[in-house]
Computed example of a mutant assay.
Amino acid sequence: MDYRKFGSKIVLRIDRGEEVMSSIMELCEKEKILLASIEGLGAADHLVMGLYDVGRQEFNETRLDIPLELTSIVGSVTEMDGKPYLHVHITAADSQGHAYGGHLKEVRISGTAELFITVIEGHVGREKDRITDTGLNLFSFD
């Protein structure tokens, strides 16, 4: 992993064999980022993503261990319990062009990943949903 800062933007390269979510978390901890948007793309050979079942309040995971083109990585960094909280979604395509998408748990890079992180001044926290009882950690604008 390597990165450069340009004002409020960070350009992040994640290298072969590295995992995206842990790399973003490492960057956020090092740079003390608690509010940002994330966008990117890349190539991978291992992906774990999920779909949250609101009724059961649990994630159903999908695991893919095939060559994948990461066509979109989008997400946010907020703060929960004093630490960065990542909420990232992914869309990936296989060699036949079949697309897969969901809530990103982990993805290992096979070639490279290129991410752009826009740091935002301000604070947005997270707290368990007490309004509609979804079990999700929602934005908290305190």
Rank of each mutant, 00 (worst) to 15 (best):
R126C: 01
S72D: 12
G97R: 03
F116M: 11
G101A: 11
D65M: 14
L51G: 01
S37V: 06
E121S: 11
G50D: 01
L34V: 10
T71P: 03
S72G: 10
V77Y: 04
R16D: 13
V20T: 06
C28I: 06
V88A: 03
G135M: 10
R63V: 14
V54R: 07
T118V: 04
F59D: 13
R126Y: 00
Y85E: 04
L86A: 00
Y3S: 03
G7M: 00
L68I: 01
E121V: 03
R130I: 10
L34H: 14
T132W: 08
F139K: 12
V20K: 00
A99G: 10
G102W: 15
I66A: 10
V54L: 10
S110C: 03
K32E: 07
I24R: 12
K5N: 01
Q96D: 15
D94P: 13
G40H: 04
M80N: 09
L70D: 04
I24P: 05
S72H: 06
L70Q: 03
F141A: 03
L104F: 09
L86M: 03
L104K: 02
I10E: 01
I90N: 13
S76F: 10
V11M: 13
H123R: 12
D129P: 02
L68V: 02
L34Y: 13
K105Y: 09
E31V: 04
E114M: 14
D53T: 02
R126V: 07
A44T: 01
S110G: 03
G42A: 07
L64P: 06
E114I: 11
R16K: 07
G42R: 00
Y52G: 00
M80S: 14
G122K: 00
A36H: 06
G101Q: 11
K128R: 11
L115M: 07
E121K: 06
R56A: 08
V54M: 07
G7S: 05
I24W: 14
L27W: 04
D15H: 12
L47M: 06
P67N: 09
Q96I: 05
I33T: 01
G42N: 02
G125P: 01
N137Q: 08
K83D: 09
I33G: 02
V107H: 12
F59I: 09
R56K: 14
S110I: 02
E39F: 08
G50R: 01
T112A: 13
I66Q: 05
I10F: 12
G102P: 01
S110A: 09
E19G: 09
L70P: 00
R56Q: 05
V20L: 15
N137G: 07
R63W: 10
T62D: 02
A99Q: 15
I33P: 03
A93N: 13
E69R: 10
R130F: 06
I117F: 15
D133L: 15
M21Y: 04
R16V: 05
K128V: 14
G111H: 09
G101T: 02
E127K: 15
K128W: 05
V48R: 02
L64S: 06
L35K: 02
S72V: 01
D94S: 08
I66V: 11
H123F: 09
V20E: 04
E58K: 03
M49P: 01
H103Y: 15
L70V: 15
